[in-house]
């Protein structure tokens, strides 16, 4: 018997349902993986950027060394350390002045142009020494990291909070 025609039996319907079910599971998996990957990358970028920027600030004297005395356009990188573990208070104040005057320029030099940045320093009792910069309004995510150093002979925490 040679008959032609469309076979649209229960077999085909059930087969299609199984296929659609498998396909929807695959799509669900992919969307979950994609969301996790995005969250992971965003979190890592936030942490890495904050840690790198703060390390540059508290471990170096900046480039050029006298950046606090020159015009802002000549500043290559901010650094407020006299030496490891000792912060130059006047450079810390200059950094905050720079951020108040040219926030976007300061973020660019810090390598944080994609984020909002807030720098603060406080002693170990929590008393604030200085605070400057900004935190995103309605921030999606943020990360704060701190480093220990002496400011005017007192152990203090210099913190950087980045957000977007």
């Amino acid at each position: 018997m040679r008959t032609k025609g469309q076979i649209f039996s229960a077999d085909a319907i059930i087969g299609l349902l199984v296929f659609m079910l498998a396909l929807s599971i695959v799509f669900y998996y992919f969307s979950q993986i994609s969301q996790r990957e995005i969250a992971f990358n965003e979190g890592f970028e936030l942490k890495d950027s904050a840690f790198s920027a703060l390390s540059m600030v508290v471990e170096t004297g900046g480039v050029p060394e006298n950046w606090a005395l020159i015009d802002g356009t000549g500043v290559k990188s901010f650094g407020i350390a006299q030496r490891r573990g000792v912060i130059d208070h006047s450079k810390l104040s200059s950094l905050c002045n720079f951020m108040d005057i040219d926030y976007n320029g300061a973020r660019k030099i810090l390598g944080l142009q994609k984020f909002d940045a807030m720098i603060s320093a406080s002693d170990l009792n929590g008393d604030s020494i200085v605070s400057c910069g900004g935190v995103s309004a309605g921030k999606r995510s943020s990360f704060k990291t701190s480093r220990l150093s002496l400011i005017n002979g007192r152990p203090c925490l210099v913190s950087l909070e980045v957000s977007r």
Binding site: F51, S55, V58, R83, R84, G85, V86, T145, S146, R147, L148, S149, L150, G153, P155
Partner: peptide, 16 residues
Amino acid sequence: FLQAFSLDTAAVLHNS
């Protein structure tokens, strides 16, 4: 972070 903070702590102990 732990390594950096540890070295900071040692530096503060020395310099203070």
